[in-house]
């Protein structure tokens, strides 16, 4: 009986050893040699005190959960955590809801990643455009290479058909909240 107690202890010890023997490395940052998979980019940096990036602004907004899910699915979260500077036109959840039923679910499928990326890149331009700098008729070239025209009428700025309904300044860019989703011309 005494011996079997020892053997039980041995078995527990074995399991414990097996579980813990290789864990010490996990406490370190994932290495970036590519051999253990690709680590996250700048979006994974732990920093609660610096001004928020455009991505962190979106993540922190309850009205942009669809946009954030889409950015994640398209692999653009890290891109928008980089230094930029970016101007992001951020459709609200309500804006996505205006799309035909099932559109968002369809776009979130892995096989639609390229289309989703194209659409999202049509919402980003490299430069920091403040609201007051927009001019009626101004054409912006978006990150994907597509173009879109701005209108300014009676103080209301619209990009394409979507109205800017709020603006948040971030560390690496500026977020203009819009009430519609911008669809780029179809890619070749």
């Amino acid at each position: 009986m005494k011996k079997s107690a020892i053997s039980w202890a041995c078995l527990f010890l074995t399991c414990g050893l097996l579980m813990s023997a290789c864990q010490s490395k996990d406490k370190q940052k994932t290495d970036s040699t590519g051999s253990t998979g690709t680590p996250a980019g700048m979006s994974a940096i732990k920093d609660d005190v610096s001004q928020k990036t455009v991505v962190q602004i979106a993540v922190g907004s309850p009205d942009h959960t669809t946009l954030v899910a889409a950015l994640q699915a398209a692999g653009l979260v890290d891109v928008l955590a980089n230094p930029g500077p970016f101007t992001v036109f951020a459709p609200t959840n309500a804006a996505f809801d205006k799309l035909p039923k099932g559109t968002v679910d369809e776009l979130l499928k892995p096989e639609k990643k390229r289309d989703l990326k194209n659409i999202l890149q049509h919402h980003v331009t490299v430069s920091m455009y403040k609201t007051e700098s927009f001019k009626d008729g101004q054409i912006l070239e978006m990150a994907g290479g597509s173009k879109i025209t701005l209108s300014v009428k009676d103080g209301q700025v619209k990009i394409g058909d979507a109205a800017i309904i709020g603006t948040v300044q971030g560390s690496n860019g500026i977020v203009h909240v819009i009430d519609g989703v911008l669809l780029p011309p179809a890619k070749k």
Partner: peptide, 16 residues
Amino acid sequence: LIGGLIFIVCSPKKDT
């Protein structure tokens, strides 16, 4: 056996 198991489980993959 324990030693062998630890060795197998923790043997670095060829890749690393």
